[in-house]
């Protein structure tokens, strides 16, 4: 490699760090691509509205074709979904969750830091859901935003939206409707608000997540799913 090429390479990797805060990991020799892909869902899940640049967002219109590509590629054996999200657009979040749920490619989700609000359905959508010991998940009701008219229809509509999220979580985890509703409307745990904060093993105890663990746990579970042993849910 000439000196110029080296410098150019260095510049490129610096650029990657600067723009995305990510480092490009060099592919190991003799291996063209990894059998497992990793999808990170971070910050706000951006849906129908472009959020102001101050927000760190996961763009769902980009994630969905990625999932299609992963599903179609026979070289990709499994998908690890890493979540550290504060929530976001309901429709976009549910769209990603439904896509994950209906994929044939084995999926494992790993919640690090936080998987709040609409992050919860995405976390349970994977074939196997893992939460790190210190990660938290906030279960709370949907709040009103945008145009609100003080008529019963508004509340009925809100209730319907709420129901979609509850139904999805209940269907794809071990938690029951009543238990989930109870956590959602619990008072006294969140400051000036209703809801429940679940830390690490609490999320496993209530049946929302499957196991407390880290990246090694997630990858070994994914390998098990790929090899066909220990299919969960």
């Amino acid at each position: 490699m000439s000196e110029y090429e080296e410098r150019h390479d260095e510049e490129l990797s610096l650029e990657t760090i600067k723009e995305l805060g990510q480092m490009e990991v060099p592919a190991s020799a003799g291996e063209e691509s990894q059998p497992f892909h990793c999808l990170t869902i971070i910050g706000q899940i951006e849906g129908h509205m472009v959020l102001p640049p101050r927000n760190k967002t996961t763009k769902y219109e980009h994630v969905i074709p990625q999932l299609v590509a992963i599903e179609q590629n026979p070289k990709i054996e499994g998908l690890l979904v890493v979540l550290n999200t504060v929530g976001g657009d309901i429709e976009a979040g549910l769209a990603i969750a439904e896509m994950l749920k209906t994929m044939n490619t084995p999926t494992v989700s790993l919640v690090l830091g936080g998987g709040h609000s609409i992050g919860a359905p995405i976390a349970v959508a994977a074939d196997y859901s893992i939460i790190s010991a210190t990660a938290t998940m906030t279960i709370h009701p949907i709040r009103l935003s945008g145009l609100v008219i003080g008529v019963p229809q508004t509340y009925e509509y809100l209730d319907k939206m709420q129901e979609r999220v509850i139904r999805f979580i209940v269907k794809h985890s071990r938690v029951g409707t009543e238990a989930l509703r109870d956590m959602m409307f619990r008072t006294g745990e969140l400051v000036r608000d209703v809801g429940t904060v679940l830390v690490g093993d609490e999320a496993v105890k209530v049946g929302l997540m499957d196991e407390v663990g880290g990246v090694a746990t997630a990858l070994s579970r994914l390998s098990q799913l790929v090899s066909g042993e220990g299919k969960v849910q």
Partner: peptide, 13 residues
Amino acid sequence: MMLFTVIPLDDVL
């Protein structure tokens, strides 16, 4: 559009 997030709406927007 409906946001379901733990971040206050004022901060998001």
